[in-house]
Design a protein around this nucleic acid. Sequence first.
DNA 1: AAATTAAACAACCGCCTGTGT
DNA 2: CACACAGGCGGTTGTTTAATT
Length: 237
Amino acid sequence: MDAISSLMLQEGWRKGPWTALEDRLLTEYVQQHGEGSWNSVAKLTGLRRSGKSCRLRWVNYLRPDLKRGKITPDEETVILQLHAMLGNRWSAIARCLPGRTDNEIKNYWRTHFKKARPSRRARAQLLHQYQLQQQEQRRQYLQSLQLLQQQQNHNQQQLQLQQNQNQQLMMTMAAVMAMMNSLQNGGADQCCCGSPVSVPEQCCALPDEDDALLWDSLWRLVDGDGSYGDGSSGGDY
DNA sequence: AAATTAAACAACCGCCTGTGT
DNA sequence: CACACAGGCGGTTGTTTAATT
């Protein structure tokens, strides 16, 4: 409570709903003195109301030119149009609607057009929608987790396969190198494993079938066709 | 029929502006 | 120019009435 309000209460200012007697006193005052000088109402009539309160009561309730009753559809249209143009300038809107007060229009707007708190039924519906949304989000989250897991397993398998292929390639390379060496050395002194042999077949030389595979791999490498292995990995070799 | 909720209305409050001194 | 005061304005709150559960 501010200083003026507490002072008003100390001095015995009345607040709250107006009585019929207060209305009559105020009406008589305005008839005699005209509108304005609201602060002198209390002195001249004995009313224990502030000037502000007197003015508000007169303007919003006692003025004889006030139009009573519901807002008509035409008036509603005007209110909507003017509000779209002027915003919350209620007094400006009220000036275009004779007999209506800014307070009345403001209340009407708030009641009918300002986004109202949803009804209980609407709130329950909103809550239900929210819960369904939450369920769906949870389901999607679990699904993506599962997908991620599958992806990781797949990657693991791919890695393993790649390692195997690399190993095989290294072995092939080593065998090729050994073969080259043996060809350079007349083909008799050393085997691919380094053992001194006169005939390669007597050491660790590959059987015919493996031998063919080995040469096949070598030509692929030389051709550089990148199709080594399962054919899915292009460019890493 | 009682309890609860929403709508409508009335009044108050604080801030701002215009005016007189 | 600075100050005080009255009046005006928009936002907010309180109360009553009507509708719904």
